[in-house]
Design a protein around this nucleic acid. Structure first.
Ligand SMILES: [Mn+2]
Ligand SMILES: [Mn+2]
Ligand SMILES: [Zn+2]
Ligand SMILES: [Zn+2]
Lengths: 130, 130
DNA sequence: TCAACACTTTAGAATCATTCTAAACTGATA
DNA sequence: TATCAGTTTAGAATGATTCTAAAGTGTTGA
């Protein structure tokens, strides 16, 4: 709890009640993929009612500060990922299945990068079926 | 034009005026990435005013029939891709830059597929910066 | 040829994730 | 403890997309 406060402060985020609860849940040591909605539901189960506006604000604040990654996998919800290492994903839209691939993946055979651009990140999504 | 009609019929799509115009634009031989909005704008330039509802309907009809691929790259628009071969993308959200990678790409080092699932498609997105 | 009907188009309303607004609240600071 | 910038929140707004239901059209069998 004081760890969390320090953690927030060290990321230039004022440790408010809401941020402490959200950070406490998100950064408990287990990697998580959450949406605003799923996070809200999860916190509600724990009797922590935080407005959706604050949940969105906080996810963005954490994202802006590099504490979360953002994943665009579906057109109707944004996932935030507590695993901020470089990694990839197995994903199934239909099954709402999403897990990390932490093994080192090599992507071979890329053509040369378009002029005046540089590679920021290579993202591999392994789409799964049943 | 009769080609287009045949093409639509052979995909069990009734060749309506609107579908003929849209297919004529989309399948002119050059690969394209369109959104409902960009397609609407493009057709309007050519004096073909088609309602957005029909544009959405048609993109989905074409997609359902395998004539288009769907790309989820941004949280606020869906891209449809006329290149239906297996391929990957260079993408920059900021620059609205999106081009195909048609070279064969190899992804090495994948862990084993999760139990009871099978790989449907491997998607590589190379995110670019300026 | 054409009536009949299933399929399609469309305007406008609805949906829904997300963002915005502006007022009340609170953590930090001296 | 007063002050104030930063934060939270209810509720409105936004915007891409989907839905509704009424009018229009391509197909086809007689
Ligand atoms: Mn949306
Ligand atoms: Mn949207
Ligand atoms: Zn992840
Ligand atoms: Zn493409």
């Amino acid at each position: 709890m004081n760890d969390i406060k320090q953690f927030l402060r060290s990321n230039s985020l004022r440790p408010t009640k809401q941020r402490i609860v959200i950070a406490g849940y998100l950064f408990d040591g287990t990697n998580k993929h959450v949406t605003a909605e799923s996070l809200s539901t999860e916190l509600a189960k724990r009797k922590h009612i935080i407005s959706l506006a604050t949940i969105y604000n906080t996810l963005h604040d954490f994202y802006e500060n590099g504490l979360l990654k953002k994943l665009i996998l579906s057109s109707d919800r944004v996932y935030f990922d507590t695993n901020t290492n470089d990694h990839h994903h197995f994903y199934s839209e239909k099954d709402q299945f999403l897990i990390d691939i932490n093994k080192n993946i090599k992507v071979n055979g890329l053509p040369k990068t378009p002029k005046n651009k540089k590679i920021n990140k290579i993202e591999v999504i392994v789409h799964l079926d049943k």
